[in-house]
Simulated assay, not measured.
Amino acid sequence: MNKKKIYSTWFLAPAMLIFLIFFIIPMITSLFFSMTVWDFKNFTFVGLDNFKMFFSERSLNIGIKNTLIYAVLTSGLKVILAFLIAVFLSSAIRTKNIIRSIVFFPNLVSTIAIGITFTAFMHPSKGIFNKVIEFFGGTGIDWLGNINLALFSVIATDVWKGVSIATVIYVAGIASIDKTFYEAASIDGASGWQRLKSITIPLCRPAMNSVIILSFIGGMRSFDLIWAMTGGGPGFATDVMASIVYKQYAAGFYGLSTAGNVIMFVLIAVLAFPLQKFLLSKEVD
Rank of each mutant, 00 (worst) to 15 (best):
F135D: 07
I69K: 14
F236D: 10
E134L: 06
L279P: 06
F54H: 02
F216S: 04
V211F: 08
F104S: 05
I128M: 13
L31G: 08
D178R: 15
S8F: 15
W143M: 04
G219N: 05
K131G: 10
M229L: 07
T74E: 05
T74K: 06
F22G: 06
I213W: 01
M241V: 00
G162M: 04
L60P: 01
I199V: 13
T36D: 03
G115F: 05
F216V: 02
A272Q: 02
S8D: 13
L196Q: 11
T180C: 11
P124C: 04
P14W: 08
L214N: 06
G260N: 00
N209H: 08
G137N: 11
G162L: 04
V240N: 00
T44S: 12
L149M: 13
P14Q: 08
G192V: 14
K197D: 10
E57P: 00
S75K: 01
T180D: 14
I28K: 07
V168P: 09
F43S: 10
R94E: 09
I21A: 13
K52M: 11
T44H: 09
S91K: 12
G231L: 02
A207C: 07
L203W: 09
I6A: 14
L144C: 05
L267T: 07
S191K: 10
A237F: 04
V72M: 08
V72G: 04
T9C: 15
K3V: 05
P274D: 05
A92T: 14
F129H: 09
L271K: 00
F265D: 02
I213E: 03
Y182K: 10
A190N: 10
I147F: 07
L12D: 08
S153M: 05
A120C: 04
V284D: 09
M220T: 03
S101V: 13
W143C: 03
I24F: 13
N66T: 02
A13R: 05
V159P: 06
I244P: 00
G231K: 01
F33W: 06
I165Q: 13
Q276V: 03
I62R: 02
C204D: 11
A228R: 04
I80T: 12
V154S: 05
K5E: 15
F223S: 00
D39C: 02
W38N: 04
F54K: 03
W38V: 01
